[in-house]
Amino acid sequence: MQTVAFWVLAVGAVGFGVAVFVVDSMARATFALLASFLCVGVELLLLDLDYLGVLVILMMIMEMLVMAVFMIMYMMNPGGLMPMTMVHNKRGALAISGSVFAALAAGVFLTPWPERRGSVPADPTFSVGESIMGPKMLVMMVIGIAILATMVASVVLATDRGRYDRPPGRADGAK
């Protein structure tokens, strides 16, 4: 059952990934990419990485919606009404991506994978965080807040007045 689900989702993830470059509408490309990420999110759920899996689903939906807004703003053919292709420099791109894929796939077979030691921890998400961050967790959390504060501050400093803010001195009146 789990194996079947894994393969269905794996094929789905790759299939939707291919669809991103096949469809001729930016809206469809964006949501094909979202579908691909959702397949990956459910794969993580299958691996019992509950938090990571649900988080991937949550964040990818939000992220792709924001991306849809921007991509449609910039692309020449958002609705698929004119001919458009997502692919450029076909031969070069094929050669590069083919060789990168071959190298990565070769790595899978050539790497001496270690045997599993010990058993699955009770909370894999927590353990992954611990082993990546280790004793630097506090530093990383402080830096995270500092980055967020910097982003908010730079946006505040960069925008004198937003599009929908009323001009100074007319706070109560019409826009």
Binding site: A27, F31, L45, D50, Y51, V54, L58, I61, M62, L65
Partner: peptide, 28 residues
């Protein structure tokens, strides 16, 4: 019963963003 059901609930609420945008976009 996932151990993170609060996050799952929130993720499913956010699906509505996609629903509305797709329904609004799709009808041209």
């Amino acid at each position: 019963e996932p151990p993170v059901s609060v996050v799952w609930f929130n993720a499913m609420e956010v699906v509505a963003w996609g629903s509305l945008w797709l329904a609004g976009w799709g009808v041209n």
